[in-house]
């Protein structure tokens, strides 16, 4: 079982992102689970969401304490919340940032593999959200697919088409662009 924890802020779409990743994996024949920690439902508040992907039935129903993958939609959370707490050794961290991976340090994590993608700029290019608050959940899934190899980009696109009823194609194209831009 692979466990993925999303960290974002209200309005960025972390909860929907965790769900779309689960649907993408489902299309590849996996058992999946996705759920939010529902805290204060307002824009800007820290949001956590979880995805589990497995070849077997998923029976566990608690939060994810030792993730294999961290997806960070807002890098300003890195100082605010102990994000990398519990990340497995050699775990992967995907950050929405224009900075280089080497500019981030996670002293709590053992040998983390850090990837960055400028999802905010890509999302803006495709008109997703506003300049002040771009909606980057679908975009960052392209980066997640590339960095982790957990799901094919085709499955992510299929899941976006299933789960995003409005501005569907710009969301799909943004994911593809993030997938293509990310160097692994």
């Amino acid at each position: 079982m692979v466990e993925i924890r999303f960290h974002g802020r209200g309005g960025q779409g972390a909860v929907k992102g965790s769900d779309i990743l689960a649907v993408a994996a489902f299309h590849e024949g996996k058992e999946v689970q996705a759920f939010p920690f529902f805290g204060v439902e307002r824009r800007g508040a820290p949001v956590t969401a979880f995805t589990r992907i497995s070849n077997e039935e998923i029976r566990i129903h608690c939060y994810i304490y030792d993730p294999d993958v961290l997806v960070i939609l807002d890098p300003t959370l890195i100082c605010a919340v102990p994000l990398s707490d519990g990340l497995k050794e050699n775990g992967k961290i995907i950050i929405n940032s224009m900075k280089e991976p080497s500019e981030f340090s996670f002293p709590d994590a053992k040998n983390p593999h850090v990837y960055t993608a400028d999802c905010s700029s890509i999302a803006m290019k495709f008109g997703l959200g506003t300049q002040e608050s771009p909606i980057i959940n679908t975009t960052i899934l392209g980066a997640v697919a590339k960095a982790t190899g957990l799901v094919k980009i085709e499955s992510v696109v299929k899941a976006i088409r299933e789960r995003i009823p409005t501005r569907t194609e710009p969301n799909a194209q943004a994911a593809i662009e993030a997938f293509e831009q990310l160097h692994v």
Binding site: A22, V23, E31, Q33, A34, F35, P36, F38, I58, H61
Partner: peptide
Amino acid sequence: LDAFFLSHTSQV
């Protein structure tokens, strides 16, 4: 069914 742990959890 448990709030959020089922109500808002996606599963197959």
